[in-house]
Amino acid sequence: MITLTHFLVVSACIFSIGLYTVLAKRNAIMILVGIELMINAAILNFVAFGRYDKINYSGQVFALFAIVLAAASVAVGLAIILNVYRHYKTINPDQITDLRD
């Protein structure tokens, strides 16, 4: 029998890896990957808890909403990254220092 604790520990691992990616990487695309990892860990928690709620199915429903939100954030984020790259010729967040020309 797989208990809730198994899921929680795995998602804690994935979340911490995502946090490390966001903090340490110098590449905007990899930072987005880190954010996706963190969102995935959250979805795993939603699903693991939602197993114990058959009346509302709230866990799975909101896991699907979270997947939609993650996809939306990636779409807008990548559009912004491409624009920034066109302007600055780099996607290192440290070198993008001013808001206007």
Binding site: F7, L44, V47, G50, R51, G59, A63, L64, I67
Partner: peptide
């Protein structure tokens, strides 16, 4: 892992969307 939490539809959506 989602399938182990008995969320088969979420797992398929994950594969399709991501």
């Amino acid at each position: 892992l989602f399938i182990f939490a008995l969320a088969d539809f979420v797992a398929i959506t994950q594969i399709m969307v991501y």
